[in-house]
Amino acid sequence: MSKLKIWETGISLNLESGDLLPNLTIGYHTFGTLNKLKSNVVWVCHAFTANSNPTEWWTGLVGNDFVINPKEHFIVCANIIGSCYGSTNPLSLNPLTGKPFYSAFPLITIRDMAKAHILLAKQLKIDKIKLLIGGSMGGQQVLEWSIIQPDFMENILVIATNAVHSPFGIAFNESQRMSILADASYFKNTQDGGKLGMKAARSTALISYRSYNTYLHFQKETETEKLDDYKVASYQRYQGDKLANRFNAYSYVGLSKSMDSHNVGRTRNSIEEALKKIKAKALCISIKSDILFPKEEQKYLHENIEHSKYELIDSVYGHDGFLLETKPLTKLILKHKLL
């Protein structure tokens, strides 16, 4: 079992917004051993509220006896800046004030996250990535990094992601932030600030991660006489509580804004021109029932990334299919010889 590693970089990171993030810390996990040719690196980029241990949240795809495994590969996953699992985040001490950042934490863009990954790769003496993989917000990081350093990765796999975050996605994120900001405790700037609001925000988010048929399949009532206390209502509350016990509202607000900021075309003339910079062999995968990152967005990536293939996974799980459909993902990784 790999343990969380902490790299105190000593670097103050110049952010895309123009702000400076002092004394950057990066939390990360590694599994396996870098071979002599340094040719076996698989770098996993995690999504919104995940941590840097993909064996916990991508079971069936990453770990012993799976297609991405430490016997064959040197697996790296870094906790994104702003997240509360090891990297600099809103609960970290601001060296300029001696107090946690809380709501004063600066905006971190997807591009800033990619720049932090580049710093860590250099620190780990990685010269080339065999496969760079990510879904959802993780896929956004994959695209940004592949544009910044097009010769650094041999293959990329992006699942249920996009080149620019959509108005629909931003609307969901803003609705979640409204729930958190409606909780007055958020403005008290304490570790538990905004916790009740974040529970409501998670419930809203979950609807976008699923689909009509997901709820119909897993949460349908069997009792015809029920008037209250529905199974799905209990499920929504449970998911809100579950996240509130492991995350904080300041990271949630900040990372949702990070996702909103995603646009690979910014400062690069156009989205199409930016995607044409990618040199890696790319596989773009859609989840058929995904309403948050619909298949049109991955088809667009395929049409504008020169060396790319496209696949569609039929799933009842909606957007979360990128995490749960590990068997078809494994088959597609092997089919397209990405490892």
Rank of each mutant, 00 (worst) to 15 (best):
M153F: 14
N162H: 04
H336A: 06
E297V: 04
E311Y: 02
A249G: 07
E56T: 11
N40R: 02
Q239R: 07
I75P: 03
M137R: 05
A50V: 02
F322K: 01
Q149N: 06
K281G: 02
S315A: 08
D151G: 04
P22W: 03
A244G: 12
T49W: 01
N155V: 04
Y212V: 04
I291H: 15
I287H: 01
N269V: 14
Y186N: 10
Y252R: 00
N53Q: 07
A233R: 14
K226P: 14
L20Y: 05
L292C: 08
K128L: 09
V42S: 00
I305H: 01
G63A: 08
L227C: 09
N155G: 08
K279F: 13
H73I: 08
L124S: 01
H336D: 08
N69A: 09
N35W: 13
K99Q: 15
K71Y: 00
L4N: 03
N69C: 06
E154N: 09
V164Y: 14
K36E: 13
Y252E: 01
M137I: 00
E174L: 08
R246I: 03
L181Q: 13
T190K: 06
V316Y: 11
G10F: 10
A163G: 09
E225H: 06
L332M: 03
T30D: 00
A104F: 07
F74N: 15
P70R: 03
Y300W: 14
I118Q: 07
S203M: 12
M198Q: 11
C284Y: 03
S234D: 15
I271N: 06
N245P: 13
L37M: 03
L227Y: 02
E296D: 15
N53I: 05
G135Q: 12
C84F: 05
Y85C: 03
G194R: 01
N162C: 09
S211K: 13
S2R: 00
A50P: 10
F218S: 13
R246L: 11
E296A: 09
S17V: 07
V67T: 02
K242Y: 11
W7D: 01
K226C: 09
L332N: 11
V253R: 04
N155L: 00
K195T: 13
S286E: 08
S52L: 04
L157K: 03
A233L: 13
N64V: 14
H73S: 07
V76I: 14
L93K: 03
K337G: 00
L15D: 07
L143I: 15
S234C: 07
K299V: 14
I207M: 08
H319C: 06
D290G: 12
G32N: 00
H165Y: 10
K279H: 08
P294N: 12
G254H: 11
H307F: 15
S256W: 00
S179Y: 10
I287M: 15
I110K: 03
A47L: 12
W57D: 10
K281P: 10
K242R: 07
F31S: 12
F322N: 08
I291Q: 12
V232W: 14
P90C: 06
Y102E: 04
I305V: 11
F152P: 06
D260L: 12
K130Q: 13
I207N: 06
I170A: 05
G86Y: 11
A244Q: 05
